[in-house]
Amino acid sequence: MRKYKVKTKKQQKNLIWIWSGLLLILLILIVFSPYIFPDSNTINYELQLQKPSFQHWFGTDEFGRDLFSRVFNGMRTSLMYSLIIEAIALTIGLAIGLLSGYLGGKVDGFFNYIMNVFQAFPTTIAAIALIAVLGTGDLTLIIVLSVMGWVAYARIVRSETLIFKERDFVLGARAAGGSSAYILGKHIFPNVLLPVLPLATLMIGHGIMAIASLSFLGFGVQPPNAEIGLMLKDSATFISRAPWLLVGPGIVLAMVVALINALGDAIRDKMDPQKQMMEI
């Protein structure tokens, strides 16, 4: 029936390789930025607000610091925090999703209701309110975003658990007298982990953006550290004098998040052949 063609497996594989390759290069720059760009915090007033040039690809900021190296340093902070946040959120989400889906009944009802409550508060606003209670700081930032982040995981884990719960191998294991903990751990957990993977990838990008937004508003990472949101906040002052302060951080942030998202999509397509129509 369908007159349009489906992308071949090979093409898809290539796509994943391209995304992964690009992402890998960026990741290497980001992760090893303190060693690649050791003097990203060195102040040199003679180089104040320089336009992008061969020496300074993204230009320099008002302290004469090289923006290119600072952007990668900043991404390092964002990425690290985002990974921690998503790891915590994923753990909570997995636990609650598994329990909720597997046990069903009152437990499921209760967790559903908790999830509804959490979803009623926009992340940024709830995060700011919590930061007001806990005080500004990097640790608070991580805690707050993890606390707000688990719901998305829990929902998907729950619905996957509901599916796998009725599968033959689970029913079989139960009939064979396997304990709930054993079935959850041995049979369901490995199976729900896979569908969660694309979401987890996407959420890393989300985490980076959330950290940047909060820092931009003054509730996240504090000034001496390089961080994308913070750099963009400072760029607001220099928007007509030095617009490149806006450009560099924006490009790298967008590239990293876009690549992570593309990778997530590619993984999803690969794992779920039914949804091949819906690449990107």
Partner: peptide, 22 residues
């Protein structure tokens, strides 16, 4: 179009806002 969509999803709204103001 698909490329721009995925790029757009990766740009924080405040960046877009500052850029538009500029």
């Amino acid at each position: 179009l698909r490329f721009t969509q995925s790029l757009k999803m990766s740009i924080p709204s405040f960046w877009l806002a500052l850029f538009f103001i500029y």
